[in-house]
C-alpha cells in the first residue's frame, strides 16, 4: 500500500513562507474554488490556509535557537478526524493514503476540526466547508505536467529543499531512507494518530579542525622550510617507505 507524505527538515527551513504562498496560490486557483482571504492587506487579515509556517524559540536567552516550523495536515495513518465525520465527507484514500474532504458532502459541522489534535483543518468561512491540505492531489497525478513537477506546490517552491515528498511505505523511497537515517520523527506521538508526515530534527553542523591538520605531521624539524634532502644520488624522502 502507498502512503504519500512529506518530510520537513527543520534544520534547513529558513521560515521564508514560500511554501505557504505557493500552496495558497495553487489551491485557491483550483477546481474547488477559492480559499477565502479577508482583509489581506488591511487590519486583521484572516483566511483559510492549508499550510502555515510558525516560529519557535528554543532555550533561554542568550542561548536560544530559532526553529521555523511548517505545519499542515499530516495525513495520519490512523486519522481521528475521519471516523467522527457524520457525512462521510472526510475520508482517507485507500490507494495513496491521502486524507481528503469531499466539499460537496461536507455540512460544515466542524466536528472533524475538533477531532484533529494538530489544528490542521480550517473551515472556509465563505464556502462553509472544511478545508485542509490535499497534498496537491490535483497536480501530483496530472500527466500534463512534466514528471518532475508532479509534486505538491510547497515542495517545488521551497528554496532550501526543506520539503521532500514521497511514499513512506516504500522502505527504499528517498523519504523513507531520510526518515530512517536522519532521525525523522512524528508530531504528538502520544495520541496514536501515526502521522505520515515526518520532521527531521535540528542538527548542529560543526567543522572539526584538529591540530595536526593545521601543522604538518610529516615535518620532523617542526619548521616550515624546505624539506632536507641528502645527496642527489640517494633515494629521496618521497621514495622512502619508512615514514
Amino acid at each position: 500500500m502507498t502512503q504519500l507524505a512529506l518530510v520537513i527538515d527543520l534544520n534547513v527551513c529558513v521560515g521564508c513562507h514560500a511554501c505557504v504562498t505557493s500552496c495558497k496560490e495553487w489551491n485557491t486557483s483550483g477546481p474547488a474554488g477559492s480559499m477565502c482571504d479577508d482583509n489581506p492587506y488591511g487590519q486583521d487579515p484572516t483566511g483559510t490556509f492549508f499550510n502555515r509556517v510558525q516560529t519557535y524559540e528554543v532555550g533561554e536567552f542568550p542561548l536560544t535557537e530559532t526553529v521555523h516550523f511548517p505545519k499542515s495536515c499530516l495525513h495520519c495513518e490512523d486519522p481521528p478526524c475521519v471516523p467522527v465525520c457524520p457525512t462521510g465527507a472526510s475520508y482517507k484514500r485507500e490507494s495513496d493514503g491521502i486524507v481528503l474532504v469531499d466539499y460537496d458532502k461536507c455540512i460544515g459541522c466542524r466536528y472533524c476540526s475538533w477531532a484533529c489534535p494538530y489544528g490542521a483543518r480550517e473551515i472556509d468561512e465563505h464556502q462553509k466547508v472544511m478545508k485542509k491540505c490535499t497534498l496537491c492531489v490535483d497536480r501530483i497525478y496530472d500527466e500534463e505536467l512534466p514528471e518532475e513537477e508532479r509534486k505538491p506546490a510547497c515542495v517545488l517552491a521551497c528554496p532550501t529543499n526543506a520539503r521532500l515528498f514521497g511514499d513512506v511505505h516504500d522502505s527504499e523511497s528517498e523519504i523513507s531512507v531520510t526518515i530512517r537515517e536522519e532521525g525523522g520523527y512524528q508530531l504528538m506521538p502520544e495520541w496514536g494518530t501515526k502521522p505520515s508526515n515526518h520532521y527531521l530534527p535540528r542538527r548542529k553542523t560543526r567543522m572539526h579542525i584538529h591540530d595536526d591538520e593545521l601543522e604538518r605531521a610529516d615535518n620532523p624539524l617542526n619548521k616550515e622550510q624546505r624539506k632536507p634532502h641528502g645527496p642527489i644520488d640517494e633515494p629521496t624522502l618521497d621514495d622512502s617507505t619508512s615514514w
Binding site: T46, F49, R52, Y56, E57, V58, E122, L187, M188, P201
Partner: peptide, 26 residues
C-alpha cells in the same frame, strides 16, 4: 501534549514566537 511533543524538540524551554499569521484564523 506539550510544546515539546507538538514540535518534537526536546528542550524544557520552548516558546512560540509567531503563529504563521498576524490577524488570527479559525
Amino acid at each position: 501534549s506539550s510544546a515539546q511533543t507538538a514540535i518534537g524538540v526536546r528542550h524544557t524551554k520552548v516558546k512560540q514566537i509567531t503563529m504563521g499569521m498576524m490577524g488570527g484564523s479559525v
